[in-house]
Design a protein around this nucleic acid. Structure first.
Lengths: 147, 147
DNA sequence: AAGCCAGATGCGAGTCATTTGCATCTGAGA
DNA sequence: TCTCAGATGCAAATGACTCGCATCTGGCTT
């Protein structure tokens, strides 16, 4: 049994424990999400899932994504000007830089920023439920005069 | 002539200079936006503009908001789970805290976070075009044990 | 292994925010 | 005042989801 299968099984067991029925469609989506190195949107996940479960409907994809988000298995990101994008929660917390020219998404993390945010909220009498930090960026041209 | 009229006139002149025709509808929206202390959405701006120019259409509101955004006169914020909200660009740059329980929007600014963002982007070979920092928060209960 | 049924699925229709096509109107420079 | 590129109103279209409902199916129960 591969590492992948191992992690998958642990996850599906946990979900079943939480009362989430693991159907073929959901298993397919979980696998597609686990394999995704990028931040795909719902239609793209649908496309990928169809290769595993032909005929899976887009509404099932949306319903499952919502369910998995509620279970804390995935995160939903609403970047500017695109449909929501999803990623699994396996990795550490991080924020995103979006290249406005290519749409490419780069992850980054900064502990100091996290701490500052918490301090600000605290000073104003709030506690953070969650936050969103997105840097819309463009590749620096080399320091030479631009052409 | 009031201060308000004065600022309004300077702004409309600048817009005309930039090739933006100042129609009754646009003047109404500019005034409504200038008066707005909150972060209203398009339909609310439409409602307010109708009191100045009855019959103004929602599509004109949307078209004008897009134009004003491109001219840098207003900012469009896409907070989670709500239609886009708008605010004029007169004030200093700031970020937003959104109370997840009431929907209330609180502004804040922090120079250190701004600088850290720029440093991060720079270190990764990018320059920031713009950014988005939103803290989704809830009012702290007093330090006593929660009930 | 078979039965059961709450919950999941597929399909199509609905929703919500926003955009667009088009015929008509109107700022504002000439 | 004249002109007409650009703006408006209306209705229809779009895009991203969401929902209603009849049918199907995981996965406890026996």
């Amino acid at each position: 049994m591969t590492d992948h299968d191992h992690r998958t099984e642990k996850l599906t067991d946990a979900l079943r424990q939480a009362g989430v029925r693991i159907t073929r469609q959901r298993a397919a989506l979980l696998s597609v999400l686990a394999d995704a190195e990028d931040h795909p949107e719902a239609t793209e996940l649908h496309r990928r899932a169809e290769e595993v479960v032909p005929g899976i409907s887009l509404s099932t994809v949306y319903r499952t994504l919502t369910e998995l988000e509620m279970q804390g298995v995935i995160l939903r990101h609403q970047f500017e000007g695109t449909p929501a994008r999803f990623e699994h929660t396996e990795t550490h917390h991080h924020d995103h830089m979006i290249d406005v020219e290519t749409g490419e998404v780069v992850e980054f993390a900064n502990e100091r920023i996290e701490r500052l945010q918490a301090e600000i909220a605290d000073a104003m009498g709030y506690e953070i439920v969650h936050h969103r930090l997105e840097l819309y960026v463009r590749k620096k041209r080399s320091p030479a005069p631009q052409g």
